[in-house]
Design a binder for these strands. Structure first.
Lengths: 113, 113
DNA sequence: TACGAATATTCGTTGACACGAATATTCGTG
DNA sequence: CACGAATATTCGTGTCAACGAATATTCGTA
């Protein structure tokens, strides 16, 4: 995973665009109307999203249909999946480390006496 | 899901910190050494990460052990999971929309004759 | 080819933020 | 309580990105 993708999604309006595109492909003007943004804003954000590979465009006459790309979404899922050990609430590591520190403190104190 | 979490993760050094914390809790100085950052930078980034709820600190004497919090990671997983329909490569929606547009074009052309 | 619709791009401005240096705070210990 | 270690916070600086307005481009059609 690269932080660029996350950074792109971190911008509120881009996030909204992505959320909208989840429900299906949309034209620029469609997005503009639904999200209440200026046309240039939508195009600019879509350019950023396209640059990081999150979306792609399909031309239809003057319109461009934007849709999400599978790969980065899949990658994001794979990345966050590596954090299972966290969200499944395993605190053994923490406990171990705390224990270790406590032992060290005690031995330090003992050694210093 | 809120974009704030993603924005926090979008900063490269914060991303590295989170990746490091995935392997277990760390002290500020530990993070500093492993990632080659200045102390103030580490503290500042940890402050941001704490503000959005991604990490929490546990004091041990002068040290603070930072560790990831389960909730936001879980939330992130839940959010990205709603995009299954994307990464499982379903293009029916797209095809439908394209068809619809094609039909419209044809009827337009027919109506105009 | 001229025109309009849809979209892209440029440009100047403004606010946010990452960084480093310096200083402040917390906390255990002599 | 003075001191040092670990961490937090403040402050000034420079950079970058979002925004709006304006302009440019693309493409179908008369």
């Amino acid at each position: 995973m690269n932080p660029e993708t996350l950074s792109a999604l971190g911008e509120p309006n881009r996030f909204r665009i992505v959320e909208l595109l989840r429900t299906g492909p949309r034209s620029v003007n469609d997005i503009r109307g639904r999200l209440g943004l200026r046309q240039s804003q939508v195009s600019q954000h879509l350019t950023v999203l396209k640059a990081v590979g999150l979306v792609e465009a399909e031309p239809h006459a003057q319109q461009r249909l934007y849709k999400l790309r599978a790969q980065p979404v899949k990658q994001l899922h794979k990345w966050i999946d590596r954090y299972r050990c966290i969200w499944e609430e395993r605190f053994e590591q923490m406990d171990e480390l705390v224990e270790e520190m406590t032992r060290k403190e005690k031995s330090d104190a003992a050694g210093r006496k």
